[in-house]
Amino acid sequence: MKMHNHDSRNSFDCDANGLLDALLQRYGLKNDAALCRILDVQPCLMSKIRHGKQRISADMMLRIHEVFDMPIAEMRTLMRAEQFYPRIRPVPVVTYSS
């Protein structure tokens, strides 16, 4: 199975190749075309994501979640997205007694 070279990544794609490669490997898919068929997306979209010309959209992440039952948190980890889009943590509630 051919894995894609990560040298061409930039901050725009948040290493989407990491997520896509993990899907290919984990589910024994031969290539991106097979992944496109399963996710019901156009190959040109996958190519744009692979080459850093387009981000993985929220719709695509939801589709991956629905098809592969992969948690969003795991996708973010595989994309190493935390460094670019840190999660918003709830602010602790402080109560004062009078």
Rank of each mutant, 00 (worst) to 15 (best):
R55M: 10
N31K: 09
N17C: 03
A58Y: 04
S97Q: 13
A34R: 07
R89I: 14
L29F: 07
L24M: 13
Y27N: 02
T95E: 10
R80D: 11
L19H: 04
A22T: 01
V93N: 04
L45C: 05
M75H: 06
N10F: 04
K30Q: 13
C44R: 11
R89E: 15
L35Q: 01
A58T: 15
S11E: 13
M46I: 04
K2M: 14
I38G: 03
P86W: 07
M79S: 10
P90T: 14
G28T: 08
D15N: 15
R87P: 09
A73L: 12
I88L: 12
A81V: 01
T77E: 13
P43L: 11
L39H: 02
S8P: 03
M3P: 09
S98T: 11
R9K: 00
E82L: 04
S47Y: 06
D21Q: 15
M61C: 14
S47C: 05
M75V: 02
G28D: 08
R63P: 06
D13E: 02
P92S: 10
V94K: 13
L62W: 10
C44V: 11
D21I: 10
N10C: 09
P86V: 00
A58F: 07
I56T: 12
S11W: 12
M1Q: 08
M60A: 06
G18W: 00
L78N: 07
D69F: 11
I56S: 10
E82W: 09
D21T: 05
S98E: 12
A16M: 02
M46F: 03
K30P: 10
R55Y: 01
Y85D: 12
K2F: 14
Y27T: 04
V41A: 02
N17I: 07
H4L: 10
R50K: 14
H51C: 11
S98I: 08
D59V: 08
M75F: 04
R63T: 14
C44P: 02
P90S: 15
S57M: 00
D69L: 13
M79K: 02
S47V: 00
M60R: 09
I72K: 08
Q42M: 05
D21Y: 01
A34F: 02
L24C: 05
K53Q: 15
M46E: 01
A81K: 09
A34H: 09
P90A: 15
R55D: 01
P90G: 08
D15G: 07
N17W: 05
R37W: 02
R89T: 15
L29G: 01
A22S: 14
V91R: 13
V91F: 10
T77D: 08
Q42L: 05
M3W: 11
T77S: 11
A58I: 14
L62R: 11
P90L: 14
D13V: 00
K48F: 02
P90W: 06
D21W: 01
F12S: 03
L35S: 00
M61E: 12
